[in-house]
Amino acid sequence: MKTYEVPQEIQDANTLEDKLELLKHIGRSFSVYRVDCGSCNGCEIEIFAAITPMWDPERFGFKLVANPRHADILLCTGPVTRQMYYPLLRAYEATPDPKIVVALGACGVSGGIFYDAYSVLSGIDKIIPVDAYIPGCPPHPASIIYGLTTALGVMEQRLEKVSFEEEGELPSLVKDSVIGNILFERDLLVEAKKLMSYIFGRKLFDKYLAALVKSGDIKNTKATKESVTEAMKIEDDPRYAECMGILHNKIYAQYVPCEEEDKISLHRVEWSKGL
């Protein structure tokens, strides 16, 4: 599909030298014009948040302006919808040369989750030349401030392309099972994730397993019950405590036959330190 070609005179006025020259001059005072090319609004709000006193980018001379003709920097968000294609170009051509274009957010950088939909053109740089990219969905106000200060040369760029081409030795990824069957650990982790989601579930898994190992004899249901209950008592967080109990009753009991009395009572009062 044929899209916009940057006219020769704009190209000539926007060489890298020109831009670096401009950046030198606007180091402490620059005007930014926002162009929303069909973003979900998340990036707009974060820009808004970034220009409030909490972040106060006027410390670096950042100023939002109402007209592209006053702008040094175009801050573009969104995957460029068909209908915003024309206004974007109008804004681009109206901005005085040389101009810096910043693409903000996953959509602006590459189209984000919408990258191949029929009504978008997959990112600002498919239409006009872009000088700086600020990924994030949406970017944190701190990311936006970092991005702008990086573009101005105040901060250093952190990321660079990383490519690994030679494989090293693969470390052993599978730990030995505590009860001699890794299916136990597998089920345990699955259940822990169901109970407390993947982030906290992994912590829960570690906590529970540590408590189990501490009992000394994992096949001994009395010992494990005691050890897990003890761990639940000293646990600060009531949610972890109750989930350790649930794991014990549900998964451990599947692998090591338990009597009813070997199960842990889940009544909150017994260990809760109160919320």
Partner: peptide, 10 residues
């Protein structure tokens, strides 16, 4: 990590 911006080269 949230400081992700890059210049010129995507």
């Amino acid at each position: 990590e949230f400081e992700l911006a890059v210049k010129f080269d995507k």
